[in-house]
Simulated scan of single mutants.
Amino acid sequence: MAQRIDVKDVNIYYGDFLAVEGVSMSIEPRSVTAFIGPSGCGKSTFLRTLNRMHEVIPGAYVDGSVLLEGVDLYGPDIDPVAVRRNVGMVFQRPNPFPTMSIKDNVLAGVKLNNRRITKSDADDLVEASLRGANLWNEVKDRLDKPGSGLSGGQQQRLCIARTIAVKPQVVLMDEPCSALDPISTLAIEDLIQELKKDYTIVIVTHNMQQAARVSDKTAFFNIAGTGKPGKLIEMDETATIFSSPTEKATEDYVSGRFG
């Protein structure tokens, strides 16, 4: 299921403005890669290029290549919708569809992709996805109740269940715990460790401790100043980034001297 991502010389634009410049990196399958760096340095913008969500913004585009198991996601014959099916996204704030039941929320992506599914298969998929998101035992007796009735942490796990129901190879998470309390954050972090057994996980986080706890590799992004493009400064094993980084800017950031 999990797949490798190779990024080569990616530049990201909003119209004429170069937002992120010259990023190259490899993201290993069945691992967690964390993107860290100060606000405005392009972490989330770069994350959205990995499933072609960046270009949804009018005038936004990318040059360079993003290879998923050797296939360029920006190739001329590649369907962006198919890319987003293979590379799922979990957003900063939980966003279950408020008028849908818990069950229908899980199945939303499957139905959106026009996959025909029997009631029995649908029930099995809902259970498997909710178990995969470590939510089944909490909601199995109220699957027909609105997803919006769950707590914030449960809603975020419901969104993760919705993401994995379509069986992606990669799961992107854009600050998935920033709106959650500490107990819910711990539940999501534990879940990330479970999910990496089957998926390639990429997470943007402002929380240094979270990056240190959940990720195998960490990429540090920075920006030289307002109006300048964000850049990847260095990427290495997480333990190395936090204990003996190569670049002084990385050391200053992870030690709390700026950011």
Rank of each mutant, 00 (worst) to 15 (best):
G259T: 04
D124S: 12
D252K: 12
F242L: 04
F220E: 02
G70V: 12
T250F: 12
A19M: 12
I12T: 13
N134H: 14
G42K: 01
D124Y: 05
N222F: 04
N11P: 03
D77T: 10
G64T: 06
V110Q: 04
N207K: 13
G152D: 07
D121P: 00
C177P: 07
D236Y: 09
G59H: 11
G70Q: 05
Y199P: 11
I241C: 00
E189P: 11
R93G: 00
N11C: 13
E28H: 08
T218Y: 08
Y13T: 08
D181K: 15
D16C: 00
P94Y: 05
N105V: 01
I223R: 15
K103E: 11
L150I: 10
I5V: 11
D77P: 01
V32H: 03
A133P: 09
S178K: 03
I164T: 06
G259C: 07
H54L: 08
M208Y: 00
K167C: 03
L68M: 10
L186P: 00
S244F: 03
S243T: 15
G149A: 10
T99G: 03
E194V: 11
V214P: 09
G147F: 09
T200L: 02
Q92N: 14
D252Q: 13
H54P: 02
E69W: 00
V10F: 06
L107C: 08
N51S: 14
G59V: 11
E138N: 10
P168N: 09
I117H: 09
D79V: 12
I201V: 15
T185Q: 08
Q154N: 03
P98H: 11
K43A: 10
G59F: 13
I78K: 14
C177I: 13
G149D: 13
G37Q: 05
Y199S: 07
H54E: 13
D63V: 13
S120G: 09
M100A: 03
S148F: 12
S24L: 15
I203A: 06
Y199K: 10
Q193H: 15
G22W: 06
P229A: 07
M173P: 11
E234Y: 05
V23H: 09
R116S: 02
D252L: 09
T246V: 15
T185H: 10
P29D: 04
V106L: 03
R162V: 07
G230W: 06
V20K: 00
R4H: 14
Y74L: 04
G64M: 04
P94H: 02
T246K: 15
P58S: 15
I12F: 01
V106Q: 06
L18A: 06
N222R: 00
I188G: 06
N207L: 05
M100S: 04
L232W: 02
I117W: 10
L47K: 10
I5T: 03
Q209K: 13
A19S: 15
D9L: 07
M53T: 12
E55M: 07
P146G: 00
V32Y: 12
E55F: 02
R93L: 03
D236R: 10
V20H: 01
E247F: 10
K167I: 01
V23F: 05
K196G: 07
D141L: 02
L232T: 02
G259D: 04
L18H: 14
I188M: 03
V110T: 12
A82E: 15
G75W: 14
I36A: 02
G70I: 09
